[in-house]
Design a protein around this nucleic acid. Structure first.
Length: 116
DNA sequence: CGGCTGACTTACC
DNA sequence: CGGTAAGCCAGCC
Protein backbone atom coordinates (compact mmCIF):
# COMPACT_ATOMS: atom_id res chain seq x y z
CA UNK A 1 0.00 0.00 0.00
CA UNK A 2 1.19 3.51 -0.79
CA UNK A 3 0.85 4.75 2.76
CA UNK A 4 2.11 1.68 4.56
CA UNK A 5 5.03 3.48 6.13
CA UNK A 6 2.99 6.23 7.69
CA UNK A 7 2.62 6.05 11.46
CA UNK A 8 -0.86 5.64 12.89
CA UNK A 9 -0.76 9.24 14.02
CA UNK A 10 0.16 10.46 10.54
CA UNK A 11 -2.61 8.40 8.99
CA UNK A 12 -5.10 9.99 11.30
CA UNK A 13 -3.79 13.48 10.65
CA UNK A 14 -4.02 13.01 6.90
CA UNK A 15 -7.50 11.57 7.13
CA UNK A 16 -8.59 14.52 9.23
CA UNK A 17 -7.39 16.90 6.56
CA UNK A 18 -9.76 15.20 4.13
CA UNK A 19 -12.87 16.33 5.97
CA UNK A 20 -14.30 19.15 3.84
CA UNK A 21 -15.63 22.48 5.02
CA UNK A 22 -19.27 22.36 5.99
CA UNK A 23 -19.14 18.64 6.80
CA UNK A 24 -18.54 16.74 10.03
CA UNK A 25 -17.24 13.27 10.89
CA UNK A 26 -17.10 11.18 14.05
CA UNK A 27 -13.96 10.06 15.83
CA UNK A 28 -14.77 6.48 14.94
CA UNK A 29 -15.38 7.33 11.31
CA UNK A 30 -11.97 9.00 11.04
CA UNK A 31 -10.34 5.98 12.66
CA UNK A 32 -12.07 3.64 10.22
CA UNK A 33 -11.11 5.71 7.19
CA UNK A 34 -7.55 5.87 8.44
CA UNK A 35 -7.45 2.08 8.46
CA UNK A 36 -7.57 1.91 12.25
CA UNK A 37 -10.98 0.51 13.14
CA UNK A 38 -11.82 0.63 16.82
CA UNK A 39 -9.39 3.38 17.62
CA UNK A 40 -11.68 6.37 17.97
CA UNK A 41 -9.95 7.33 21.20
CA UNK A 42 -6.66 7.58 19.40
CA UNK A 43 -8.22 10.15 17.07
CA UNK A 44 -9.15 12.23 20.09
CA UNK A 45 -5.63 11.97 21.41
CA UNK A 46 -4.19 13.06 18.07
CA UNK A 47 -6.48 16.08 17.92
CA UNK A 48 -5.54 17.03 21.44
CA UNK A 49 -1.81 16.72 20.90
CA UNK A 50 -1.21 17.77 17.30
CA UNK A 51 0.53 21.12 16.84
CA UNK A 52 -1.74 23.95 15.71
CA UNK A 53 0.29 24.65 12.60
CA UNK A 54 -1.01 21.45 11.02
CA UNK A 55 -4.34 23.23 10.79
CA UNK A 56 -6.35 20.10 11.44
CA UNK A 57 -10.12 20.68 11.25
CA UNK A 58 -10.69 19.61 14.86
CA UNK A 59 -14.02 21.41 15.01
CA UNK A 60 -15.48 19.12 12.33
CA UNK A 61 -15.00 16.03 14.51
CA UNK A 62 -17.83 14.94 16.79
CA UNK A 63 -19.08 11.95 18.71
CA UNK A 64 -20.96 9.26 16.78
CA UNK A 65 -24.23 10.70 18.07
CA UNK A 66 -23.55 14.15 16.63
CA UNK A 67 -22.84 15.54 20.11
CA UNK A 68 -19.81 17.76 20.50
CA UNK A 69 -17.11 16.03 22.53
CA UNK A 70 -17.06 18.85 25.08
CA UNK A 71 -19.49 19.84 27.79
CA UNK A 72 -22.17 22.25 26.62
CA UNK A 73 -21.21 25.88 27.28
CA UNK A 74 -17.57 25.01 27.90
CA UNK A 75 -15.03 27.33 26.31
CA UNK A 76 -14.12 24.65 23.81
CA UNK A 77 -17.69 23.76 22.86
CA UNK A 78 -18.50 27.42 22.30
CA UNK A 79 -15.43 27.86 20.10
CA UNK A 80 -16.29 24.73 18.15
CA UNK A 81 -19.85 25.88 17.57
CA UNK A 82 -18.51 29.22 16.42
CA UNK A 83 -16.16 27.65 13.89
CA UNK A 84 -18.91 25.36 12.61
CA UNK A 85 -21.31 28.25 12.27
CA UNK A 86 -18.82 29.91 9.95
CA UNK A 87 -19.24 26.87 7.70
CA UNK A 88 -23.01 26.97 7.81
CA UNK A 89 -23.13 24.02 10.22
CA UNK A 90 -25.43 24.83 13.10
CA UNK A 91 -24.97 23.43 16.57
CA UNK A 92 -28.18 23.07 18.52
CA UNK A 93 -28.17 21.87 22.12
CA UNK A 94 -24.48 21.02 21.82
CA UNK A 95 -25.21 18.78 18.85
CA UNK A 96 -25.02 18.76 15.07
CA UNK A 97 -27.67 17.14 12.88
CA UNK A 98 -25.75 14.33 11.22
CA UNK A 99 -28.50 13.69 8.70
CA UNK A 100 -27.75 17.11 7.38
CA UNK A 101 -24.01 17.50 7.78
CA UNK A 102 -22.37 14.10 8.02
CA UNK A 103 -19.44 13.66 5.65
CA UNK A 104 -20.09 10.64 3.46
CA UNK A 105 -17.14 10.30 1.11
CA UNK A 106 -17.12 7.78 -1.70
CA UNK A 107 -14.35 5.20 -1.64
CA UNK A 108 -12.86 6.76 -4.76
CA UNK A 109 -12.82 10.14 -3.04
CA UNK A 110 -10.90 8.80 -0.07
CA UNK A 111 -8.39 6.88 -2.16
CA UNK A 112 -7.72 9.93 -4.29
CA UNK A 113 -7.27 12.31 -1.38
CA UNK A 114 -5.00 9.99 0.56
CA UNK A 115 -2.69 9.69 -2.43
CA UNK A 116 -2.07 13.44 -2.44
C1' DC B 1 4.65 -6.84 32.55
C1' DG B 2 0.26 -4.90 34.90
C1' DG B 3 -2.65 -0.80 35.81
C1' DC B 4 -4.81 3.38 34.52
C1' DT B 5 -6.49 6.86 31.33
C1' DG B 6 -9.14 8.85 27.66
C1' DA B 7 -11.70 15.20 22.57
C1' DC B 8 -14.95 7.16 21.97
C1' DT B 9 -18.88 3.60 20.90
C1' DT B 10 -22.44 0.40 21.41
C1' DA B 11 -25.93 -2.03 23.84
C1' DC B 12 -29.55 -1.96 27.11
C1' DC B 13 -33.04 -0.26 30.17
C1' DC C 1 -34.41 10.73 24.45
C1' DG C 2 -31.41 10.27 28.95
C1' DG C 3 -28.35 7.29 32.06
C1' DT C 4 -25.47 3.39 32.94
C1' DA C 5 -22.26 -0.23 31.90
C1' DA C 6 -19.07 -2.52 29.40
C1' DG C 7 -15.95 -2.79 25.51
C1' DC C 8 -12.24 -0.69 23.31
C1' DC C 9 -6.93 -0.01 22.53
C1' DA C 10 -2.66 2.90 22.21
C1' DG C 11 0.23 5.35 25.25
C1' DC C 12 2.30 6.30 29.45
C1' DC C 13 3.82 5.25 33.69
Amino acid sequence: MANSRLSNIQRIQRTLQCVPRGKVASYGQIADLAGLPGRARLVGKVLRESPADLHLPWHRILRASGQLAFDAHSTQADRQAELLAMEQVEVIQNRVDLKQHAWQPSLADILFRLEQ
